[in-house]
């Protein structure tokens, strides 16, 4: 991939993030003029809580930042998992972490803990998400070697089990709790808070740094595990580290916003055409692309049927499912040709 093309892609992505951010803040039931964004933010920070300042500072800005951070997290996770599994159709769903986290969060709602303790839902999602990944990883690891096919199959099986448990809990729940669960299961960004922004920012930036450090090893692992070990890549350790961080990141995202699917699948796939498969470009590009996709999807979710607000997970699923089928179709054609 030519250096010039990579540079222009990054310029376009940064401009895209700025535009998406401005749109997300300005457009809504209550319009905010562009020139008012900075003064309203300053007013909110300095404690002058006018209506406009509250809308920008307390509602739209944290919502935008959560969208940007979760989008970045999901897309980079997708890029990393696609390298680890050597499968361009992998995304956070495949290692079961999404469904595991969802099950954990649903359990805390069902048990009534989440209503009284704010930390309960994120912690529940996090514990179950990590628990599922550890279980799947142990199932697929024999003699200190992880069989990726076994990992994928175990992921499918455990995800199905988690989904079954979620359905069971839903069907046994009273109507009001069920509504809360369904709303959360579909993934949404409403009610995003500054504390969530802070939590996500810490995890997302720390993970990005680690992903960039192991980026070269991920590049090499795409050539095959034996090749990678031959040049000195500690393949097993990189796999553990990548899967662990991906699980952590997705669990934090799911505990904050609910299940948002397909971002991790679409974004890295689209950007490979522009920046290539080298992870030192693909990871930051995916972070920016994911941020753009989720913030624009949220805008669509908020405005498409205004005043009714959709869950952002519905929008990403509507985009992602046809894209997944398109990928499947492309691969089948490639197989037929070969």
């Amino acid at each position: 991939m030519s250096r010039r093309r990579v540079t222009w892609t990054f310029v376009a992505l940064v401009v895209g993030v700025v535009i998406a951010s401005i749109l997300e803040i300005c457009i809504g039931p209550m319009g905010i003029p562009i020139r008012q964004i900075v003064p309203d933010t300053i007013a909110y920070v300095t404690g002058q809580h006018s209506t406009d300042a509250l809308v920008v500072g307390a509602i739209r800005l944290p919502r935008l930042l959560v969208a940007l951070l979760v989008g970045a997290a999901l897309a980079t996770t997708g890029a990393v998992l696609q390298a680890v599994f050597k499968n361009p159709m992998s995304d956070p769903g495949v290692i079961g972490v999404s469904s595991g986290s969802a099950m954990g969060a649903i359990l805390t709602i069902q048990l009534g803990i989440s209503a009284t303790r704010l930390w309960a839902r994120p912690v529940g999602a996090f514990i179950c998400g990590i628990g599922v990944v550890v279980l799947i990883y142990r199932l697929a690891t024999v003699r200190q070697r992880t069989n990726l096919y076994a990992l994928l199959l175990a992921g499918v099986a455990v995800s199905s089990l988690c989904s079954a448990i979620i359905t069971l809990i839903l069907s046994l729940s009273p109507l009001q709790t069920m509504e809360e669960m369904l709303f959360w299961l579909m993934g949404g960004l409403d009610g995003s808070s500054w504390s969530e922004v802070l939590l996500l920012a810490v995890f997302v930036f720390a993970s990005l740094v680690v992903f960039l450090i192991i980026g070269w090893a991920l590049d090499i692992m795409l050539t095959g595990e034996e090749h990678a070990e031959g040049v000195g890549v500690p393949v097993q350790r990189i796999k553990q580290l990548s899967l662990g961080i991906c699980a952590l990141l997705v669990a934090v995202c799911v505990s904050t916003t609910g299940v948002i699917s397909f971002v991790g699948l679409i974004v890295p796939h689209l950007l490979r055409g522009f920046v290539g498969s080298t992870h030192r470009y693909l990871i930051p590009a995916s972070a920016l692309g994911g941020a753009i996709l989720l913030s624009l999807s949220d805008l669509v979710a908020r405005m498409a049927f205004s005043p009714v607000e959709l869950n952002v997970g519905i929008v990403t699923a509507c985009l992602g499912a046809p894209f997944f089928l398109y990928l499947l179709f492309q691969r089948q054609r490639a197989w037929q040709r070969s």
């Binding site: 590049d219 795409l222 050539t223 095959g224 034996e226 090749h227 031959g230 290539g276 498969s277 080298t278």
Partner: peptide, 10 residues
């Protein structure tokens, strides 16, 4: 190793 895959994107 014995073979170098044909789909290596580098």
């Amino acid at each position: 190793p014995q073979s170098i895959a044909e789909d290596i994107p580098y």
